[in-house]
Amino acid sequence: MKKLLSFLRAKWRLFKFRRKNRSLAVDLSLIIVLSGIGFVSVWPLLFIINAAFKPISEIFLFPPRLFVQNPTLNNFFDLGVIISKSNVIFARYVFNTVVITFLGTGGTVLFGSMAAFPLAKYKFPGSKLMSSTIVYSLMFNGTVTAIPNYIIMTKLHLVDTYWAIVLPVVGGTFGLYLMQNFIVQVPTELIESAKMDGYKELGIFFKIIMPLSKPAWITLIILSFQSLWGTTGGTFIYSENLKPVSYMLSQIIAGGIARTGTASAVALIMMAVPITVFVISSNVLETMATSGLKG
């Protein structure tokens, strides 16, 4: 009993590692609230993971069960068979997605942050107009702009290329708006002193702004990756060998009720990739945050 208590106390110190001014009661109640909401939140995650390993007999079980009883890899084998029969080899779809995601995410982070810096930190002719145009265009719905966009793409001969997906994403205002809101917080004194040292805006951007807004652009990488990973190409890419992997997988799911098992395997794969990126990025973020403290 004593051992347990001291163990608990040691664990408790882990929670209170940061500061002393925390009351135990509030800590406890907040943790209860957190786990309550977390329980509701994590449910789909558990469901998708379990469903992927369910044999057919359990998928259609009544009453339905959340947890799998006799896990099997059959769903993945079935998926493998379907993939191997595809006309365009699977690796090509993966390659397409990698290129689109890489260009789109890289472009959003780089161009978005580059433009966000002057808009957040300086006043110059046109800066206010540009800022407000950018925020306001966040509020216009994409369904109707798809048609003018398609016409522009046709005129620029970009339809059925990767650029048809990548360029509108990079030219979207979300990334810039996110970066702008973080870069505003970079202390102006730092920028001033860098200016004294002879740095121009471009130098300040790479030497000061980017390192100091790491949490922001890592968040942006996560969000941007996630949306690009899910893109199916829609009407903008019609050549089968340029289609991304999520399109191919969604076609497999469209096979109806007989593909229910395969579909749950697909759902797991579609979710596993962004989660992996998320975990890696947030790990990078954590190590940077702690190393930043020491430095």
Partner: peptide, 16 residues
């Protein structure tokens, strides 16, 4: 610094 973004923004967001 703004230019590369702004060209893309203008063509693919603003005009539409």
């Amino acid at each position: 610094l703004i230019l590369p973004f702004f060209i893309l923004f203008f063509v693919f967001t603003f005009i539409p």
